[in-house]
Design a binder for these strands. Structure first.
Length: 287
DNA sequence: AAGAGGCCCTGATAGC
DNA sequence: TGCTATCAGGGCCTCT
């Protein structure tokens, strides 16, 4: 589900709701996420105070005292729900599907605070929780990740030299977290639309100017998505409260066979499987 | 080293 | 109605 903007929104709302709270109890109902939840997990978290919640790429980072903490990845279908204890009152804005009620199935992990319970729901179980003991372990986790689009390191020298001589298509690189961190399948298609680059174009054929466009629009598209509260796709009918609205701004994603939205372009948006992920692009203005 | 492909898992939807 | 196939916002692992 979540790409950088969605995780950023979750991070912000977690900071509003559980910052400075102390973990009173942890219940793991299903340890079999992407990686098995360690047996020390519950004990390790208990009585820890959450100093703040950070984010890197698509990962949430709960920071405890003395620099230990917990990294959370939401996989494809992970959502976080904050419920008031003893009541089924769900805080809006925290889960991306914003179910009006807590889902009945797949609530794998519960983290209880004094007045709030954090519930991790994940039908496909591609997400995971990972404990780190100190800053070194935290850094090690992300040592192989490329810069985020907002980073000063994501600059023209970096991008143009990285893509040089590479045979893979450009969309693949936008999804490659070693190249750039935080972009997923939706925003990769959207960014390439603004750049007027065909997703199948080989990286080595990307010009210097196109590299500049990729940098510019990677920042712009993600920033706009954050500003709009992320994208809420699927489950539109069941949403309530504040949901993301960036899906209304999609130019190509899920717009197969519709007219290209670029001014004066007569093209049609096409959908094509590229490296096992669907890609959307205009057949005319994206070269 | 770089690239291609399989795989992890459940649920929604389309087609027969 | 019920079956099967396909697809879904991710990314790790293996093989070549």
């Amino acid at each position: 589900m979540p790409e950088l903007p969605e995780v950023e929104i979750v991070k912000k709302s977690l900071n509003k709701k559980i910052k400075n709270e102390i973990i009173r109890k942890v219940i793991v109902k299903n340890r079999n996420l992407r990686f098995k939840i360690e047996y020390k997990f519950e004990k390790y978290l208990k009585n820890k105070k959450i100093i703040k919640i950070e984010r890197f790429s698509k990962y949430l980072i709960l920071i405890f005292e003395n620099n230990s903490g917990c990294i959370i990845h939401l996989g494809m279908s992970g959502t976080i729900h904050l419920i008031k204890k003893n009541k089924k009152n769900i805080f809006t804005n925290t889960s991306f599907y914003n179910h009006p009620v807590l889902p009945k199935k797949h609530n794998h992990i519960e983290i209880q605070f004094d007045k709030i319970t954090f519930v991790y729901n994940d039908p496909r179980r591609f997400g995971y929780f990972f404990i780190f003991n100190n800053n070194i372990e935290l850094k090690r986790k992300f040592s192989k990740f490329g810069p985020e689009p907002f980073s000063a390191n994501f600059n023209i020298q970096y991008v143009s030299s990285y893509l040089k001589k590479k045979e893979k298509n450009i969309k693949n690189f936008l999804l490659d977290q070693k190249f750039v961190s935080g972009i997923g399948n939706i925003y990769a298609s959207e960014i390439l639309f603004y750049c007027k680059i065909n997703p199948q174009k080989k990286a080595k054929k990307i010009t210097y100017n196109e590299c500049k466009e990729i940098i510019k629009y990677s920042k712009q598209v993600l920033k706009n998505a954050i500003k709009q509260g992320g994208s809420s796709i699927r489950d539109f009918k069941n949403t309530m409260g504040k949901k993301g609205s960036f899906q209304k701004d999609f130019k190509v994603y899920q717009r197969e066979n519709l007219n290209c939205l670029k001014l004066n372009c007569k093209g049609i948006v096409k959908k094509k499987n590229i490296s096992n992920r669907s890609s959307f692009f205009c057949n005319t203005c994206q070269k």
